[in-house]
Design a binder for these strands. Structure first.
Lengths: 231, 231
DNA sequence: TACATCAAGATTGGATCCAATCAACAGATG
DNA sequence: CATCTGTTGATTGGATCCAATCTTGATGTA
């Protein structure tokens, strides 16, 4: 066993032990844990993922590991290198730009479709999530809250596949959110954006909501770009 | 073996025999063949797909079948019903609307990013594909040609993940293209749209190109909607 | 010393086997 | 006659085993 694999196993050990929800199948367990580890940065880009090591770390056979890796490959989180094992895909300015281009295309569409059908309960939930984010000290939980906030505003779009795509892109964005938070200290800027989005949605102003959202995503993109440029 | 499964096997037999390209792995072979069968309509919505039957039909074990089904589930082409087997997802007006909403969001973005970098070779290829579509008598090949035409215009967007998403949506669209072709006879309408898209791209008119593309997608959506409404 | 060749190790994809779970149906019972 | 229950059959998820392929390092030679 080489050192990289040991590192991967050690990084995973905590996550595996802390596996809160109980999964229906071992494959789900492995996939969800690996995805969390990659998106949160516990498994950094370039980390090799050998099936046998992962199977041992998870206490399962190689088969659920294999299926989980396939799923992660489909989500562009890992690359398969034939006869060398899977490796966690590297993050890069260009990959981040890709994510932002997709978000910029999809999210305003989902938002516009959703706004006319949002109700009071939705607005309350979104406001609660803003408050939660203001109070949340743990940066690693920020990704989920951010994702839930955005999704709460898109939820009434009535387009399940569109929403699934958006949610996937927001999850992919988690890999970069860490840098964003690091660069912006406590990220008050985007909380202002979030409030503006909610306000616009409340008043049913679809055009303004779209403009705010695009600017929100654009600001985040610029922050990440700057981060990559500065190294 | 129940009758539905026999139908599925029979539908597949031809495709399996005609498998032109040689695949690197059995999983790829099964996945590609099943996807083609579903997208082309050979396997209609609701068809149950039992792993054992498929394994027998493909001449492989259940394992590559299982992995292929997982991939297809991730692409929303099949649903897993626990302890009942997988079934091909039903197509519906609402699902079609979902596909169109996604295309309408993603494709203009890809087009706009690509247009400034398109070169003469790209335009020639696109024009060739239009000519090919004009001459193609086989409706089942139209989907691939249509997809390649669209992708040829987006190819220079420089956003690999965005393009992968777009290509996936265009492939999903194949399931509806059959109805579109049936409704429009020889579909000269959208060939006009295709020429207009190419013209706009050639002259570098990003705004007009986007407008034409949106109208193109909107027209197709309306045709499909009408088709579903009429039954 | 550089390079070609070959053997051993590692890694994956696939096959077969086993256990757990659930659906469906027959039969009993109120 | 409706309903509940127990049993059987079907189906999947997971484990273990095997074969094929590639990488890598050692070794011999020009």
């Amino acid at each position: 066993m080489n050192r990289d694999s040991e590192v991967a196993s050690l990084s995973l050990a905590g996550l595996i032990a802390a596996s809160g929800p109980r999964y229906r199948t071992a494959t789900e367990f492995v996939e969800a844990t690996l995805r969390t580890a990659i998106l949160s940065g516990s498994l950094g880009g370039g980390t090799p993922l050998r099936q046998e090591d992962l199977a041992e770390a998870f206490g399962v056979s190689r088969m659920p590991v294999r299926e989980a890796l396939r799923q992660l490959e489909a989500q562009a989180l890992i690359d398969f290198v034939p006869h060398k094992g899977a490796v966690v895909t590297e993050i890069s300015a260009s990959d981040a730009a890709d994510t932002y281009a997709i978000r910029l295309a999809l999210e305003p569409a989902a938002f516009a479709l959703s706004i006319p059908h949002l109700n009071g309960e939705d607005f309350t939930r979104a406001a609660d999530l803003i408050a939660e984010m203001d109070a949340e000290p743990d940066p690693s939980r920020m990704g989920e809250l951010n994702r839930r906030f955005h999704m709460s505003l898109y939820a009434r779009a009535g387009r399940p596949r569109l929403l699934a795509l958006v949610e996937g892109q927001l999850a992919a964005f988690d890999r970069y959110l860490r840098f964003h938070l690091a660069a912006k200290g406590r990220e008050h800027m985007s909380q202002d954006d979030h409030r503006a989005m909610l306000d616009a949605a409340r008043s049913g102003d679809t055009a303004r909501a779209g403009a705010v959202l695009k600017s929100h995503i654009g600001t985040a993109a610029a922050t990440i770009d700057r981060f990559f440029a500065e190294r």
